[in-house]
Simulated scan of single mutants.
Amino acid sequence: MHDIAATAGVSRGTVSRVLNGGYVSASARAAIERAIREVGYVPNTAARNLVMQRSQAIGFIVLEPHSLFLEDPNIGGIMLGANAALSAADYQMVNLVVDSERDTARITRYLSGGFVDGAIIVSARSHDPIIQVVGGIALPSAFVGHPRDLHPDIPYVGIDNIASAEEITRRLVATGRRRVGMIASAVDRDSGADRLIGFQRALGPAFDEALVAEVPLYDFACGAKGMRTLLERDPTIDGVFAASDAVAAGAMEALREAGRTVPDDVGVVGFDDSSWATRTRPHLSTVHQPAGDIGSRAADLVLRQLRGESIDRGGVLMPSPVVWRASA
């Protein structure tokens, strides 16, 4: 500060006001900004944060295995949307992936230690310890998705998974399919459970529990495994709703291996409208999930809490239209 003041020809108090956002004349501010560039001054963020009791960091917590974090473009889209909103507000995003009980314990300590000012939480399961931690320490947070036991003071951003799953299943049935099954992923999370509910509602009395293959993850390998299970249970199956695009891509590979063509023999639809949807052949009919907008909106909810603004503690549901392509 002494060097900046001497270079700019102003008092240290004037420099202090500029560095802390106070008012000075335009000419003094310009001189100080030139001096900052000249002397190469960089604020000591750690010292400032210690005084302000702020880290200027927001945790982006993904409660999924590491492999899915890298493979699922939907998670990547949410992350990039959140990062753009946080960067614009001069906050750093810290990625935290929870893949085990040990991860849960470690990140619980991290959140409680004041290393982040807030958190965006993706793919929380019901009764997840992370929900209790962020609620207990009143950490400004937002969920992506809607866990059944969501803390009442924590807002969420998501889509209407039930209505979207119901709509695309009805579209699939309307193509003339008679034996329609589902590869139901992650039914321990709200998204997976809700998509299964929507599928069941769409079929009504035609719903056959035997034509639901449950798999643990939204990934390619689980899709292939689930499709093989459905073919073993009923070789006449002619329609499949996969709970994500990656799962649908795996299902289409299993169908190809079994000598079935898509959509002639089996119509396939997915969910997310991710990059998987246009990497498949034929391209995948799916539900568009606005991942980037969801991440940005979740980040905005956290930032507004940090600014002390009032927010709606309920949920924000984003539009999720069906995108119809050649796979059905």
Rank of each mutant, 00 (worst) to 15 (best):
A298N: 04
L150C: 12
L301S: 05
L86Y: 05
R189F: 08
R281V: 15
V302W: 05
A142I: 05
A119W: 10
A8P: 05
Q53G: 03
A47V: 06
G270Q: 12
S27P: 02
P155N: 10
R195V: 03
D264N: 12
M227N: 06
A193H: 13
H283I: 08
S275V: 08
L306E: 04
V94Y: 06
V262T: 10
D153G: 13
A326T: 11
F207K: 06
I32S: 01
L303N: 07
V212N: 04
A184Y: 10
L111H: 10
R179D: 05
M93F: 03
I75R: 05
G223R: 08
D90R: 15
V39I: 11
T104L: 10
D264I: 04
A243F: 12
G176T: 09
E38S: 13
A163G: 09
I131V: 14
F241L: 13
Y156P: 02
D238A: 02
V302S: 06
V302N: 06
P319M: 07
S87P: 01
C222Q: 10
E33W: 07
D99K: 02
E167V: 11
I107F: 14
V323S: 06
D90V: 11
V173K: 11
L80F: 00
N95R: 00
M318Y: 03
P129G: 11
L231K: 05
D117G: 13
A30I: 02
I162K: 09
D190S: 15
N161G: 12
T286Q: 07
D219Y: 03
A163S: 14
S274V: 02
R148V: 12
E257W: 00
L111C: 11
V268Y: 03
D293E: 09
H151F: 08
G81R: 04
V322A: 13
L19S: 03
S327Y: 07
Q132V: 07
G226L: 11
A213D: 02
Y91D: 07
D72N: 14
D272H: 08
S285D: 09
D117T: 12
A328Y: 01
H127W: 00
Y91S: 07
G9Y: 02
A28D: 09
A202E: 11
R54P: 11
R109F: 04
L150T: 11
E257M: 00
G181R: 09
I78K: 06
A248S: 13
L255D: 01
A84V: 00
H151T: 05
L86C: 10
Q53V: 03
G158Q: 05
D72W: 02
I4N: 01
A248L: 14
V173R: 12
L150A: 15
D234W: 09
D234N: 14
M79S: 07
F143R: 09
V10M: 04
F60Q: 03
Y110V: 05
G76Q: 09
P321S: 07
Y218V: 01
A82D: 02
E214H: 15
V144S: 03
A165D: 11
G9L: 02
R307T: 00
A8Q: 02
S126Q: 13
T169M: 06
R281H: 15
T14G: 03
I61D: 01
S141R: 11
E33D: 00
A248P: 11
E101W: 01
A213T: 12
S27T: 12
A249G: 08
A193F: 09
S310K: 14
R34P: 00
